[in-house]
Design a protein around this nucleic acid. Structure first.
Lengths: 194, 194
DNA sequence: ACCATTTCTTAATCTACATCAAGTGCCCCG
DNA sequence: CGGGGCACTTGATGTAGATTAAGAAATGGT
């Protein structure tokens, strides 16, 4: 049951009373997405944080030559949003799309702010969530600056073993920052070793 | 006077009473660093968030072939820490070094946590600070995936005009992710245009 | 003021990865 | 159950930026 999943997710960092759980869940809005349907598109203002209860989303940008760059995957039990747009309430730069039929729970920015007021534990929770995202983002930047494509691929396999055999290769290629062609070669071990 | 600088910095997001200011400043620990002195080195556990009141620091990692990658510059009025290590309290991956004689105010992790308890506004402040870092880090990742070195250089010039003519070129080269040699060419406009 | 070190420039060559092109297999939808 | 697109592979060629090497200029410590 989806509400259990999100309550357990919160429980990783904060403990809520029964009443607090009820306040929280009343702020949530469930939504179903079909494969290839968008939760958010480029230029839209991001108004929600989304928590995935089943399926999988991807967040990506499109550069000026039309190439897509996957910024994040969100399988179930993950949060996703275009943080830039959510914070600034300016038109965003991400598309968030369902890679398969997916169910999410939406928490609007205004409800999120109400939670901060009403139950300060939520400010604590989202601070920690954001800190962890920051560390992950910085690590990915370090990897992109200092590792080869193959090393990044190996890291990805170690870190996201579940995603690997469940996602189209081109999505993973885009995430680690190579073309599908080069990715295919790497997997086949056809990149020359030294 | 350094305390004013940090209090104004807080004031960007939260308002403190006089007493709260006093509690806060009592938790701070001033420290002076000489040029080339380290605030933190690889393998050390990061115990402090540092706020720069004068001078400039840089945070960088060294990859396995010995190449340095600058992750952040911290001129005065900026916060810096090895977030990975600060959060996990595991040995860190960053070196934080003074690029010139620098003064910082240190806030220990334990004092920071005390502030969260005693004055919840601080949790709010650091949540926002972390959110902004996250957005900046994500943007930098997007840039590194989708822009050429020259475009990243132009962005850097626009975003940090003050730093540009005040930092050694090789530091900027490292930040945008190119060799000093290539950086020099770019600046000279010697990279062939099309 | 001076020397040593570091920083910056310029040039020749090299390489990881991209691009372009073609072909194969497969999966989804009508 | 058939076919049209999409995902993947493989090969030939192109290129942004790295590496190596060397000299010139700037800088800072004594």
């Amino acid at each position: 049951m989806p509400l259990n999943l999100i309550l357990n997710n919160l429980e990783k960092h904060i403990h809520l009373t029964r009443e607090e759980q009820d306040i929280f869940t009343a702020y949530l809005q469930p939504k179903k997405l079909k494969r290839k349907q968008f939760l958010l598109t480029y230029g839209e203002v991001c108004k929600y944080s989304a928590f995935v209860t089943s399926g999988c989303l991807r967040g990506y940008t499109v550069d000026k030559s039309g190439i897509e760059h996957v910024l994040s995957f969100a399988p179930s039990d993950w949060w996703i949003a275009d943080m830039y747009s959510l914070i600034s309430q300016k038109p965003g730069i991400q598309n968030i799309e369902a890679l398969e039929d997916t169910e999410v729970l939406l928490l609007s920015k205004s409800n999120q702010e109400k939670l901060y007021q009403e139950i300060p534990k939520f400010e604590h929770f989202f601070r920690i969530l954001t800190e962890n995202s920051l560390v992950a983002s910085q690590q990915r930047l370090i990897d992109s600056l200092s590792l080869t494509a193959e090393e990044r691929y190996n890291n990805f396999c170690k870190r996201y073993p579940t995603l690997i055999d469940h996602l189209p290769q081109k999505q993973i290629a885009s995430y680690i920052g190579v073309t599908p062609e080069f990715f295919s070669r790497m997997r086949g071990g056809m990149v020359r070793k030294r």
